[in-house]
Design a protein around this nucleic acid. Structure first.
Length: 263
DNA sequence: ATGGTAGCGCTGCTA
């Protein structure tokens, strides 16, 4: 199974690019974040034309997550278990069963500034994600959690850690919350494939030429359950897809990441 | 140098 994750920063603005990318990358499952779209506007037919079933969870203006699958898609659930969709989770998690794998597309809150109300919300949201996983699955099940975690797991996952003093995405509480997912039984698939590779990022700020100057962060992750970790055989961040489709069409600020897993 | 860009949507927020 080839499973991908991509924060598209508006699905409306990026639909053509996504269609192009899906056609050549040929993922079996795609998890999208920041669709910034309502469920009514979601282009179900466009994905069906490419051979993908799909599910979406969004309110329109902010956030919004989706799953595309060409290996079946059922038992879709928007939001956390036992909570009204859109309530606490803010259209940031969608879960579905695809080809025998329980897949979650997550968009973890940004956190804005360390110590802020939004930062505390981010930490609580990550704990809620762990509790949701623990309540609905086990690490011995086939589980994949994909998305924009807005946390760089280690110092080597940012372009220059000295530039991040006191910043979000690298603080110890955020990293500890991410590690709690690993303690439960998830494995960072990209890091499993590239245990020694540094300076491989998934996000670059639009400003100041950061992409072309190599100033990025690895914050988009594919986490696989212990049951699947042994089958992970390949992973790639497609930097080409971060280059857009010409001067009139800016790219997303994130590149897609995909992982190939032998099930 | 406290900047810079993008999306949504029309004012300023979010990232």
């Amino acid at each position: 199974m080839r499973i991908a994750t991509w924060n598209v920063n508006s699905l409306k603005a990026r639909l053509a690019k996504l269609e192009e990318w899906v056609s050549y990358a040929e993922p079996d499952v795609v998890c999208l974040q920041e669709t910034k779209m309502s469920d009514e506007a979601f282009p179900t037919a466009a994905f069906a034309a490419l051979g993908y079933e799909s599910a979406h969870h969004g309110n329109g203006r902010w956030n919004g997550v989706a799953i595309l699958s060409r290996v079946g898609l059922d038992q879709a659930r928007a939001g956390f278990l036992g909570e009204p969709p859109g309530a606490i989770e803010q259209c940031r998690i969608l879960t579905a069963s695809c080809g025998g794998v329980r897949v979650a597309s997550v968009y973890v809150p940004n956190g804005r500034a360390v110590g802020s109300e939004q930062y505390d919300f981010k930490l609580a949201w990550l704990r809620r994600l762990r509790d949701d996983l623990a309540a609905t699955t086990t690490p011995d099940d086939a589980v994949v959690v994909c998305g924009d975690f807005n946390v760089a797991p280690e110092d080597r996952d940012v372009w220059d850690i000295s530039q991040f003093l006191g910043a979000t995405h690298v603080s110890e509480p955020e990293r500890a919350a991410l590690r709690e997912l690993e303690v439960w039984g998830l494995v960072d698939a990209f890091r499993a494939v590239y245990p020694d590779a540094d300076r491989l990022y998934t996000w670059w700020d639009y400003r100041a030429g950061d992409f072309h100057n190599g100033r990025g962060m690895r914050i988009d992750l594919v986490l696989v359950s212990r049951a699947l970790a042994g089958g992970v055989r390949y992973a790639l961040v497609d930097r080409e897809a971060r280059k857009g489709m010409g001067s009139d069409k800016p790219p997303s600020d994130h590149a897609p990441l995909f992982v190939d897993i032998d099930l």
